[in-house]
Design a protein around this nucleic acid. Structure first.
Length: 307
DNA sequence: GATGAGCGT
């Protein structure tokens, strides 16, 4: 019985208590031979109605007893089980091909090359894959920063080399998925066409003729508790994946030129700024916990007297 | 712990 267990079986949560109980029984009592004579437990389904049939055998009073149970599983479990069943029916692959049942139950070390997909690249931004939106946002951001005087230098060892930042999975978008428009009818380009839409033409943009200069102050996000050596490039890598950024400003001390530990990030889109705030506020970075929130409106400059 | 520079047309 125990020997016939398969890895996949243990993953079915509603079996867990039974398995535990069986394992305990097997460990404590009963000569193994007697246990092994019992036919293996069988699980059928779940069928379309979500009913799973479990057939198992046990010894009761010296007699072998067949026990059939029918269990209704939840929708969530149905979904899970579907995956489990699919995997169970997968053929063997790699070095597992040709193993017999005994070998299959034995843990052994194998070496197979697993290729990891890079989440983000700065140079190869022409790929049309699931990260395309993200790459596009980053490219747009870099272009905007170049226009506004912040260099869009390609990544080098000097930039963010010691920063271990990975884009959280929940941030990434699917291939055709567009960010939600905040208000009004959608942009001129057909959704999903992949066509670039300039900010001035996007939903939520003010009337035509509004320039980047006036947009630079919008959707201002303040980041505090930055480490002293955080550079614009680091913030670009941190915030860029959430959407196009029109400005990054790090407050430096006028005299010492040291960072004052806070910065402002301006997003082209308010909803993307909000997403960045939601995800990055409280985010651990450089051994510090970032604080990310909406910035208060900038202090108006004292007006010059006279004219 | 903290809320930005510059305006030059």
């Amino acid at each position: 019985m125990v020997s016939m267990m398969r890895w996949g079986d243990t993953l079915e949560d509603d079996d867990f208590d039974e398995l535990t109980a069986q394992a305990l029984v097997a460990a404590n009592a009963a000569p193994a031979k007697q246990v092994e004579k019992l036919p293996p437990k069988q699980v059928f389904g779940p069928d379309k109605d979500g009913v799973k049939t479990i057939v198992e055998y046990k010894v009761e009073g010296g007699h072998k007893v067949k026990v059939t149970k029918k269990v209704r599983v939840t929708k969530k479990q149905m979904k899970t089980n579907k995956g489990v069943l699919e995997r169970r029916n997968l053929g063997k692959f790699g070095e597992a091909v040709g193993l017999n049942a005994e070998q299959e139950r034995t843990t052994m070390s194998m070496t197979e090359d697993i290729f990891l997909e890079r989440v983000k690249t700065s140079k190869d931004n022409t790929r049309k894959d699931e990260n395309f939106d993200q790459l596009q946002a980053l490219a747009t951001t870099k272009a905007l920063l170049r226009m506004s005087g912040i260099s869009g230098k390609p990544d080098g060892p000097a930039f963010g080399a010691n920063k271990a930042y990975k884009v959280p999975a929940s941030v990434r978008r699917g291939p055709g998925e567009r960010p939600p428009d905040e208000d009004g009818p959608s942009s001129l380009a057909k959704p999903g066409s992949g066509q670039y839409v300039p900010p001035s033409l996007r939903a939520g943009a003010s009337s035509a003729g509004e320039t980047m200069r006036t947009r630079r102050d919008e959707n201002s996000v303040r980041v505090t508790n930055l480490s002293e050596d955080t550079k614009e490039q680091d913030l670009l890598e941190l915030f860029g994946p959430f959407g196009a950024i029109s400005r990054i400003y790090i407050a430096y001390d006028r005299e010492t030129r040291e960072s004052r530990g806070f910065a402002f990030i301006n997003f082209v889109r308010k909803d993307e700024a909000q997403r960045a705030i939601n995800k990055l506020d409280g985010y651990g970075y450089d051994n510090l916990i970032l604080r990310v929130e909406w910035a208060a409106p900038r202090e108006p400059r004292p007006q010059q007297e006279g004219r």
